[in-house]
Amino acid sequence: MRDNNTAALSPYYNKVHTWGRLWSVGALIVLLSVPTAICTYLGVWPDASSVFKALVKVIPIYWITAVVEVLTYTPMLGAGGTYLSFVTGNIANLKLPCGLNAMENAKVKANSEEGEVISTISIGVSAITTTVIIAVGVVIFAPVLGKLTDPDSVFSPAFTYILPALFGALGAGYFRKHWKISFFPIVVGVVVLLFAPTLAVGTLIFVTIVASVGGALLMMKFKLV
């Protein structure tokens, strides 16, 4: 007998979730094998209490952020895009804007099967491109790139301000089409940063999405959009 979750999705979505679960478990095993292999190769294992001291500081931030990110990114990226993004990493600064841009260009919605397809292809291509660039860069360009991005380099500001460049370019199209609902979440984001300027971006995204969707619903209620 099929469970409610299985019945509520199309066969393609159900397959994607089956593949995604298997790949996620596989990725977890591969990831855990890295420190295991390193310690075996070096013939030394770290002191558990020291590792625990660091984990106590890191886990509360990272694990809460992980919950928020899974809740936030899954509706945006679709199933395939989400499974791929969380394995390949660099979501907020690369996979998310890349997937959003691809869906915008293809004129498809995130919660449609077409959006699922475009998002998955975009994020998969982005992951392979990143892997190739890092691999080639490490082998060939490492000495040159170090000079390019050195704080004294003339090109350094291009990399320092890459996120405003990336999200300004991505946001322009949305702001033009939906300018009435765009101001409120930005203002909320700035106000939050006034009180917590170093707030982690994963948490800030959650706040601005709630503000944006809430603001849009209110404006619709009062027939302003």
């Binding site: 995130a110 996120l163 909320v188 984001g189 170093t198 800030l204 601005t208």
Partner: peptide, 25 residues
């Protein structure tokens, strides 16, 4: 309303980074 809500969710993500560019540390 779905189109507006969907767009609002996208804008919410972008707004976080725009806000950081305006007043982030």
């Amino acid at each position: 309303a779905a189109d507006v809500i969907s767009a609002a969710a996208f804008i919410g993500i972008i707004a976080a980074f725009i806000a950081r560019a305006i007043y982030g540390k």
